[in-house]
């Protein structure tokens, strides 16, 4: 491993200033990706600029919607009850990334800036319409997360720009979300496929109670959906995002459109799954085969949507982990 200088600025301005004066320099946050790349000699910067001392990047702000500083760790997010309740898909993702040791230091900004197609937090951020707030020498700008990724390891960040935070709008009533990470192992694993969904449904008190009774059973997902159809639950709005199916995490926009305004039914979910699968271009890799990933999109979109609905209908219940959704 070649030698490098290590800088520890205390403010965003200072960090940008250091960066703009250096060649072959790289920002480092939690370091769980950067340090590994260094040790594998995949990168060899002469300068590393640590962001860890910049406390203004560590905020979680829930006043209007949700703002998460880029230096917030996965563990911080796991422990945030507000996020868990309202932006559940994000907690689904942060709680299953790497291991406890990794989550204790790995930051959400780092996970996104590393721009891996498998980045766990990318799908939830996409479904929450997150904007990346970026600060650079030329000032501050906001980029829709959809536009943030350019390809594997590539983002819109200019050399002397820092990702400050993610900003997500407030969610409507009766909105639920979920992220499902499909893995071979139950921990310490990258997703074969990741799917996040957010759905807003029309729901009155009475139908909430009836749905609740339905969802409390351990019936199969299709049986529950069949009965749900009679409730006439309408999907007001939906978001679907998928990881490891393209060079970058993507939204399944056609599938989202197919959901909007429809009455929820097993047929609808299956159709939406098919559409989402058609929007993906997964590849064969040692981590998973393309055909299998496509098949799993159909299954996981359905399950993630179910899980999202479950969270609307039964907001205070833990979802049984052994349940398929």
């Amino acid at each position: 491993m070649r030698s490098f200088e290590y800088y520890k600025p205390n403010s965003i301005e200072e960090a940008i200033k250091i960066m703009s004066g250096l060649d072959n320099a790289k920002f480092i946050a939690g370091g769980t990706d950067v340090m590994v790349q260094l040790r594998q000699k995949k990168i060899s910067p002469q300068h590393l600029i640590s962001l860890r001392n910049i406390s203004e990047l560590r905020n979680i702000d829930t006043k209007d919607g949700l703002k998460i500083g880029s230096l917030v760790t996965h563990d911080d997010i796991d422990k945030n009850e507000y996020i868990k309740k309202y932006y559940s898909a994000l907690t689904d993702a942060t709680s299953r990334l790497g291991s406890k040791q990794i989550r204790n230091v790995a930051t959400i900004g780092g996970n996104i800036c590393n721009a891996a197609p498998s980045a766990d937090t990318a799908c939830p951020l996409l479904i929450f319409d997150a904007k990346a707030v970026i600060i650079g020498t030329k000032g501050e700008r906001e980029v829709d997360l959809n536009e943030f990724f350019l390809g594997p390891g590539k983002t819109v960040l200019e050399k002397d720009e820092i990702l400050k935070e993610f900003s997500m709008p407030r969610l409507k009533e009766n909105t639920g979300s979920a992220y499902i990470k499909h893995t071979r192992r139950e921990a310490m694993d990258l997703p074969i496929l990741g799917v996040a969904t957010r759905i807003t449904i029309s729901l009155d008190k009475d139908s909430q109670i009836r749905c609740r009774d339905l969802l409390c059973t351990i019936d199969s997902i299709s049986n529950i959906l069949m009965q749900l159809k009679d409730e006439g639950l309408k999907c007001e709005e939906a978001r679907i995002a998928m990881g490891v199916v393209a060079p970058k995490p993507i939204r399944a926009k056609k599938a989202e459109e197919a959901l909007a305004g429809k009455i929820i039914s097993i047929e609808l979910f299956e159709e939406v799954g098919e559409i989402a699968a058609s929007e993906a271009q997964p590849r064969d890799s040692i981590r998973g085969e393309a055909w299998y990933r496509k098949e799993m999109i159909k299954v996981l979109v359905k399950r993630a949507l179910m899980k999202s609905i479950d969270r609307i209908v039964r907001p205070d219940e833990e979802i049984y982990p052994e349940r398929l959704w």
């Binding site: 290590y6 520890k8 480092i28 370091g31 769980t32 340090m35 590994v36 040790r39 590393l48 640590s50 860890r52 563990d75 406890k100 040791q101 990794i102 204790n104 230091v105």
Partner: peptide, 20 residues
């Protein structure tokens, strides 16, 4: 694994200068 500020951390990918 070591404990840094109460948290379990992988010391093999922890930059030494962050120990300050």
């Amino acid at each position: 694994t070591v404990i840094i500020e109460g948290k379990a951390v992988n010391s093999c990918i922890y930059p030494v200068l962050e120990a300050e």
